[in-house]
Write a protein that binds this DNA or RNA. Structure first.
Lengths: 123, 123
DNA sequence: TAAGCCAGTACCCAAAAAGAAACTATGGGA
DNA sequence: TCCCATAGTTTCTTTTTGGGTACTGGCTTA
């Protein structure tokens, strides 16, 4: 278990380890959804505006292989598959929180400051 | 100033704002380098193993336009250009720290747990 | 006189990632 | 009999990313 799809070369610095686990356009957003609640495939598909089925499947498979996400299949007939976070997946919460806080703070700044530039001159 | 290259559609959730600012393969790693110290172009180029000049230039330009990075040109003759973090750039520290901590913790787990699977059965 | 240094640009081609759309399986309901 | 739903897979096309090579400018060193 754990970051299986991640290629073995250069574990280098911890930040890179994390980047390999949740880098890319979609994984952080998938995590955001799954922190809210357990979700089914089509729920995720609808929530993540713009993602294709292929990408969603692919990202979920990688996250499952990395031990971040648990995939539970119910043997029904319209198929039912639920995705939830594993303990390892939930341990990413501080990162999501930090990203949430920064994005929010940035938005507040943008609407309070009168767009004054700090840099004296460069370029 | 501020996330200039970021396209205006759907500010949606704060996590997405952050993703647009530091998403992609290189920006987090560039930030990691610049948190250590102010660096010159070739210092960054050597530190970020695998990045091409083109990519480095491109990412730095976007980060500059987004107000995360300050580019300072010294009118010397072998040219000297220094890259440093702006206040906004430094405000990303909690995210970098959280990513660092997770990567480190993951590494410890991997070497302490006897690779026991939690999932009863799925797939 | 020529080559070296730094911080890039410019151009072109190859590879990888992402996306769009159609297709599949199964069973229930109209 | 046809259609619907879910959770994908397959195929094809487009976009993004990566890489190579060459070029610049002006001072310094050989």
């Amino acid at each position: 278990m754990g970051l299986a799809h991640v290629n073995p070369e250069r574990p280098t610095c911890p930040v890179e380890t994390t980047l390999r686990a949740i880098g890319g356009r979609w994984k952080v957003l998938i995590l955001r959804e799954l922190f809210q609640e357990v979700k089914r495939f089509n729920q995720l598909h609808r929530a993540l505006d713009g993602i294709t089925q292929k990408m969603l499947t692919q990202q979920l498979r990688e996250m499952e292989a990395d031990g971040l996400v648990l995939r539970t299949v119910y043997p029904q007939v319209p198929p039912k598959v639920e995705y939830s976070l594993t303990e390892l997946g939930r341990s990413l919460k501080p990162i999501l929180d930090a990203m949430h806080d920064w994005g929010e703070q940035f938005f507040e700044r943008r609407h309070s400051l009168p767009t004054r530039s700090t840099s004296a001159e460069s370029r």
